[in-house]
């Protein structure tokens, strides 16, 4: 099956792109890497009437260090570029590890960092990663820019706060605190395939090995990527004992995710996976933090 007919625009600047998006309104759709959108169109699950292709907008592709030790990533930066970038590897190794789980290199060569976030697939890695890393998102429209916290960005499956005339332009990652460990855990039937459940976590320890902050992001187990609140409530200020972590994992599996029954597994089984993966992710992150 091939895509249904549509109009195609390939602006070469942000300004031109925003003009076009404003003009098209609800009939326009941004085309970034296309690795999710075009399969969906080929499968007739998406039928945009006009595509605004950002691939020729060179100014949206960059990775810049921020003064505080974080990073700013332009929305059209290819996943494989982020994955291979020295600064990203230095400052956010968990992001590299996460990206390596996105499909395969070939897809990551086309797929873009911002595209995956704006697509908001509940089974995708990057929305969860930016929740975990507490990113700030720069959103542009003809009337100017606005900043949205990652935690406010996703509102449902394939739904974000982006208005039709807006585009996601940049993702800013605040620096990781010292003594932060991180872990990526997933269960999937295929290495590069959709996860039945997946967890990314960070744990920051203080000088006496007590938890300063514990963050747990989940995906593939709800209507969008999720950030669990219980882990930090329970663990902050505490020594992260196996018992405490187990309590957190059990709670998150029961109360802080919403996996349905689908072809990938039943709800009961996937809650079990969340339980196991949250536990493993926290234990691993604590160990990493101590290194």
């Amino acid at each position: 099956m091939k895509p249904a007919p549509f109009d195609y625009y390939a602006p070469t600047s942000v300004e031109e792109a925003l003009d076009k998006l404003t003009e098209l309104g609800y009939s326009g759709k941004v085309l970034a890497g296309g690795q999710s959108l075009i399969p969906a169109m080929n499968f007739r699950m998406a039928r945009p009437t006009a595509l605004v292709d950002l691939n020729k907008v060179k100014e949206l592709s960059y990775i810049k260090p921020t003064a505080d030790g974080g990073l700013a990533i332009g929305t059209m930066t290819r996943d494989s570029v982020v994955e291979d970038d020295i600064l990203v590897n230095e400052r956010f190794p968990i992001l590299v590890n996460t990206i390596k789980h996105i499909a395969h290199k070939q897809i990551r060569n086309r797929g873009t960092f911002g595209g995956a976030i704006a697509h908001a697939d509940p089974a995708a890695q990057l929305p969860a990663a930016i929740l975990l890393l507490d990113a700030n998102l720069k959103v542009l429209s003809k009337s100017g820019e606005r900043w949205v916290k990652a935690t406010d960005f996703f509102i449902g499956p394939f739904m974000t706060v982006l208005e039709p005339e807006e585009m996601l332009a940049e993702v800013v990652l605040p620096p990781m605190a010292p003594r932060t460990g991180a872990s990526y855990q997933q269960v999937s039937r295929q290495k590069g395939g959709y996860a039945q459940a997946a967890v990314i976590s960070t744990v920051t320890l203080d000088g006496s090995d007590r938890v300063k902050e514990a963050r747990v992001a989940l995906f593939s187990v709800g209507e969008s990527a999720l950030l669990a609140s219980k882990p930090n409530q329970v663990l902050a200020g505490q020594v992260p004992t196996a018992e405490a972590i187990e309590e957190v994992a059990a709670y998150v599996a029961k109360n802080e995710c919403d996996p349905g029954t689908d072809i990938h597994g039943t709800e009961e089984y996937r809650r079990n996976l969340v339980h196991v993966l949250v536990r493993r992710a926290l234990i691993d992150a604590v160990q990493q933090a101590k290194k």
Binding site: G34, Q35, Q106, I107
Partner: peptide, 22 residues
């Protein structure tokens, strides 16, 4: 859907699927 890879080419030196590229 870009999943089998038989349609791949090198674009600017990088392997990419062409069935999911306009």
């Amino acid at each position: 859907t870009g999943e089998c890879g038989a349609c791949s080419v090198l674009m600017d030196g990088k392997l990419v699927p062409t069935c999911v590229m306009l």
